[in-house]
């Protein structure tokens, strides 16, 4: 464990807490893409299956459980508890277009062709694009709630590096949309 990873983990933790807190207190999940949250739950589920097979440390186990539990809790809040406030008409990204290529790529490009390794690789690929439904939603509505952040560590791993670069580009796009649409309040409007 180094300071960068710890800060990354804690930022992630805080981002999730802010998101859950905001949904809970506003009693609304307007502006949040349920589809992105489903993809993140899929990312954590496919990556943290090693919870069953390998014990690393109490910190590691608790963080993995927290990320899993909080992503399923977010899905519950969006699709069950505050379903009425979920903006599903604007959350129309076809997630199969992200899941299927990620599965295919994980089957083709991986370090080792084994069940857990392919799932781990799938989770890395999927994480890099899981924000796309949220990005799509912001570009349509010009609204955004909290953004969850994700990170990669400086481990020389080509799969993680390429996925990280793709993810960074997408997040830059998100930042651009946030500035131009959300902060400046410019909404695209169709002529009457």
């Amino acid at each position: 464990m180094n300071i960068f990873r710890l800060l990354g983990d804690l930022s992630h933790l805080i981002a999730i807490i802010i998101l859950l807190h905001k949904i809970w207190h506003s009693r609304s999940c307007a502006g949040i893409s349920g589809k992105s949250q489903v993809l993140f739950a899929l990312v954590y589920t496919s990556r943290y299956l090693d919870l069953i097979t390998t014990y690393v440390s109490l910190y590691n186990t608790l963080m993995k459980i927290f990320f899993l539990a909080s992503s399923y809790a977010t899905i519950y809040l969006i699709y069950v508890k505050f379903r009425a406030t979920y903006d599903k008409n604007h959350d129309t990204f076809r997630i199969e277009f992200l899941i299927l290529p990620s599965v295919l790529l994980a089957l083709l490009i991986n370090h080792q062709f084994s069940f857990l390794e392919v799932l781990w690789t799938f989770s890395i690929y999927l994480e890099s694009v899981a924000i796309l439904p949220q990005l799509f939603m912001v570009s349509k509505t010009g609204e955004a709630e909290s953004i969850t952040s994700h990170y990669f560590e400086y481990h020389y791993d080509l799969i993680a590096i390429v996925a990280g670069v793709v993810q960074t580009v997408l997040y830059c796009d998100f930042f651009y949309l946030y500035i131009t649409k959300v902060l400046k309040g410019k909404k695209l409007q169709l002529p009457a």
């Binding site: 690393v56 440390s57 590691n60 370090h111 080792q112 390794e117 781990w120 690789t121």
Partner: peptide, 10 residues
Amino acid sequence: ESGTDLHDEL
């Protein structure tokens, strides 16, 4: 090193 060897990473 494979991805699943990195058990301590989140």
